[in-house]
Simulated assay, not measured.
Amino acid sequence: MIETLGALLKNLGIGYKLLFIIITIISGFLISKLIQFFMTRMLKKASDKLHVDPTNYSFLKNAVSFLIFIIMMIVIFYSIPELKSVGLSLMASAGIFAAILGFASQQAFSNIISGIFIVIFKPFHVGDFIKIGELHHGTVEDITLRHTVINNPENRRIIIPNSVISSETILNSSITDPKICTFLEIGIGYHSNIDKAIQIIQTLALNHPNIYDNRSEEDKKENKDQVGVRVVNLGDSSITLRAYIWAEDSGKAFVMKCDLLKSIKEQFDRDGIEIPFPHQTVYLRQEEPIKITQV
């Protein structure tokens, strides 16, 4: 298409060629402003949902304007025969520089693309409690197109590049429904009273301030237990009980689980319910000394 346009401009005078350059520049400017207008509206909506500063995305609009400017210059240089040779020389030298720059900024560009995907697909928002992979977890404080800032339970900020987040599994404890069911597993001895142990776990859990009643109205009418406890394993030396306890969010669930582990252990000790632990019995055998008889 550019070659056809160049053939048409080849036989025209200098005045028409200058007019073509002016029209191309004005058109590129108008297209750039139009795209920036729609991008500003789109990014503002995304910023409001993520509760971040919309100026974080201003560089993206500038990058689009720069791209349009490059396309406009290519059209001008390739359409006018007198400028074509100059344009080829400039493009050859710029190509080498672009290759070096592209190689150096490959990781940064990957972070930007991953940040755009986070903005579009919204796997988490500011204020969500998430876990990235197996190492990092905490509350999301800020999301930019380069990195995400997480405040962990130790009140330390973890800055994770968006490209790393895109390649990891994300566990979001706050999305849609923040309620969480905590699994509390405790082993008791085979000679211990199972029903008594279950009753202790249920009573202590119901008395904890962080417990949440997740039963439906139908479950309440049927008088189903608020804290379900099941025997989930018959091990080599213990019977494993699992309690299903609900809390409003992961933070309260963690505190409740820690408190119950302590209170259940103390109550089991008072009621004589054993919590087995690995132990070994060592038998020492003393051999009789060998008697040597002389002949």
Rank of each mutant, 00 (worst) to 15 (best):
F129Q: 15
I25G: 06
G115M: 10
G13V: 08
Y244L: 12
K224S: 14
A7I: 02
V52F: 04
S250E: 12
V295Y: 15
L8I: 13
F129K: 15
Q202P: 00
N172M: 05
P54T: 05
G272N: 09
V255E: 03
K179C: 10
V75E: 08
G228H: 13
I264F: 00
G95I: 07
S263L: 02
N172I: 06
I68V: 15
E134Y: 10
R146K: 13
G28V: 09
V119N: 14
Y78M: 14
D249L: 08
K131Q: 15
S32N: 00
T240H: 09
R215H: 00
N11C: 01
I160S: 04
R270F: 12
S114T: 12
L260G: 07
E168D: 07
N62I: 11
K265T: 06
D219L: 07
S114W: 05
N207A: 15
F121S: 13
V282M: 07
Q286A: 08
N223L: 12
N56K: 15
P81D: 09
D269Y: 13
R156P: 02
S174H: 00
D236I: 03
E248C: 02
S85G: 05
V229E: 02
A197Q: 04
D142K: 13
S173C: 02
V164C: 02
R242H: 10
L50A: 04
K265G: 05
F37M: 12
F97R: 03
I170C: 07
K33Q: 09
G187P: 01
M73N: 11
K257P: 00
I158H: 04
N11E: 03
P123W: 04
Q280E: 14
L184T: 00
I70T: 15
I35N: 11
P289H: 15
H191N: 10
F69Y: 08
D195V: 01
I273W: 05
L260D: 02
I194L: 01
M72T: 15
I2K: 06
I158T: 04
S27V: 13
S47H: 05
E3K: 10
L50G: 02
E141W: 02
S58T: 11
V295P: 15
M1H: 10
A98P: 01
D236A: 06
T24F: 02
S105P: 00
R146N: 15
Q267G: 01
Y244V: 06
Y212A: 06
